[in-house]
Amino acid sequence: MTEPHFTGDKRAIEVKSVSKSFGAYQALKSVSFDIGSNEFFTMLGPSGCGKTTLLRMLAGFESPDAGSILLNGKEVVAIPPHKRRVNTVFQSYALFPHMTLEQNVAYGLENLGWEQGRIKTRVGEMLERVHMGPMARRKPAQLSGGQRQRIALARALAPEPEVLLLDEPLSALDLKLRQAMRDELRTLQRDTGITFVFVTHDQEEALDMSDRIAVLGGGEVQQIGTPAEIYEEPVNRFVADFVGETNFLDVEVLDTTGREATSARPLAFPSPCRQPAQR
């Protein structure tokens, strides 16, 4: 595995030797990594790899059997979800169908005890930020899937969380809308300066949007790195097979020097038809 630690000045999240089992099934096996402040960090992997379990632990919906989770240097394992400055955007959006859009966005702020004038100002700001201001009085049933996703984002961002968790939020959208929402998510993350932790099984989403990617498999972190590092320098067969389109060839190794090897034929090479986004 590559170096899991963030090399910048400030860490938003520190996951330290976290393990979790459900009966005989071990979902996570001593997972450790850091996420930087204002980073767009993606957990990528197939179904059952442990990424959603880990996201739920960051949110406070699950507790680890062992290990610790720090948010801005503070241990949060024993802190309930509503007392963490962490919000989650779910795949299903989880909007209140009987409320208008502005009421949906205001709901969390009211629970936090914000003053009504401040709530009104903040709701207006967030609806404008996601380009939904003119539809403030509509209800979720009157919206398209992409519009509902924007409202879910506005509601989650309104209380100014330290971290925003996104649990496969684009998977219910059609291809064209998913591509448009990727750009919107990335712009929102840059504009707000909030740390985004994104969970997906879609390698294209991960390569296009992320500052760094953690590839998970079998309950373990297989590799962490930038999209280019993950794509161009996979550390094992699992990562090479899961990320990008890779051809595997049987080879005879003739000699090794450090990390380099001489062989009769190249071992593996990425397909040129899919490259990570340039930043």
Rank of each mutant, 00 (worst) to 15 (best):
Glu128Pro: 13
Glu128Arg: 13
Val130Glu: 07
Met132Ala: 04
Gly133Gln: 13
Gly133Ala: 15
Gly133Ile: 09
Pro134Arg: 00
Pro134Gln: 00
Pro134Thr: 06
Met135Asn: 10
Ala136Leu: 11
Arg138Ala: 12
Arg138Trp: 10
Lys139Gly: 12
Lys139Trp: 01
Pro140Met: 11
Pro140Trp: 04
Gln142Asp: 15
Gly146Ala: 04
Gln147Met: 14
Gln147Arg: 12
Gln147Asp: 14
Arg150Ala: 02
Arg150Asn: 02
Ala152Tyr: 00
Ala154His: 00
Ala154Ile: 02
Pro159His: 03
Glu160Val: 11
Pro161Tyr: 08
Glu162Tyr: 09
Val163Thr: 06
Leu166Arg: 05
Leu166Phe: 13
Asp167His: 01
Glu168Gly: 05
Glu168Leu: 06
Pro169Trp: 00
Leu170Phe: 03
Ser171Lys: 11
Ala172Gln: 06
Asp174Ile: 14
Leu175Ile: 03
Leu175Arg: 09
Lys176Asp: 05
Arg178Lys: 13
Arg178Cys: 12
Gln179Ser: 11
Ala180His: 08
Met181Pro: 08
Glu184Tyr: 07
Glu184Leu: 06
Glu184Asp: 08
Leu185Thr: 08
Arg186Asn: 14
Thr187Met: 15
Leu188Val: 15
Gln189Leu: 03
Thr192Cys: 07
Gly193Thr: 13
Ile194Tyr: 02
Val197Thr: 12
Phe198Asp: 01
